[in-house]
């Protein structure tokens, strides 16, 4: 299968196989008017299988959201056919307005307009805790 290379845009590589559609929705890629290619189950030396997303346009990606969704992703920024920047993601230290606390006893369940905030407490297990009630949330 052939998918054209990106001349100016973003390539999200090493997405965990099967997660590309979730990331497509999280980043709101359906709202873009440019070409977006999703490659699923590509061969990977590192992971066996992986997904890739190619976006034919440079736009501002929320790296916190992306890192939370899959910290193993490699982001490649391409400009005029050349790789301009390449970086690896990690779990963000803080999640502000990304996920919601599900504890019904948390103040966020009743107080209007509070932005839900989580802090990373254990990188290895991907465990976050709500800044208000300390309820745990494990990134999967």
């Amino acid at each position: 299968m052939n998918v054209d290379g990106v001349s100016t845009g973003i390539v999200l590589d090493h997405i965990q196989a099967g997660k590309s559609m979730q990331i497509y929705k999280l980043l709101g890629l359906d709202k873009l008017s440019c070409n977006v290619a999703i490659i699923q189950n590509a061969k990977s030396r590192k992971y066996g299988k992986k997904d890739i997303i190619k976006i034919d346009e440079n736009f501002q990606i929320d790296l916190d959201v992306l890192g939370f969704a899959d910290p193993h992703i490699t982001v490649n920024i391409v400009k005029n056919g050349k790789l301009e920047k390449k970086f690896h993601l990690a779990l963000p230290k803080e999640l502000i307005g990304v996920i919601k606390c599900k504890n019904p006893r948390c103040i966020t369940s009743v107080e209007q307009e509070i932005v839900h905030k989580f802090k990373l407490v254990d990188e290895e297990s991907g465990m976050y805790r709500c800044e208000y009630c300390d309820t745990a949330y494990v990134a999967k």
């Binding site: 006893r105 948390c106 103040i107 966020t108 107080e111 509070i114 800044e131 009630c133 300390d134």
Partner: peptide, 27 residues
């Protein structure tokens, strides 16, 4: 004192006077 967990954190964000948590639910 408030029955909801984390209410004093919200309070501390909204005022300049010191906040003492006198109990926030089971927290």
């Amino acid at each position: 004192r408030h029955p909801k967990e984390g209410a004093p954190v919200v309070a501390a964000d909204r005022t300049t006077v010191p906040i003492i948590n006198a109990g926030d639910g089971g927290h």
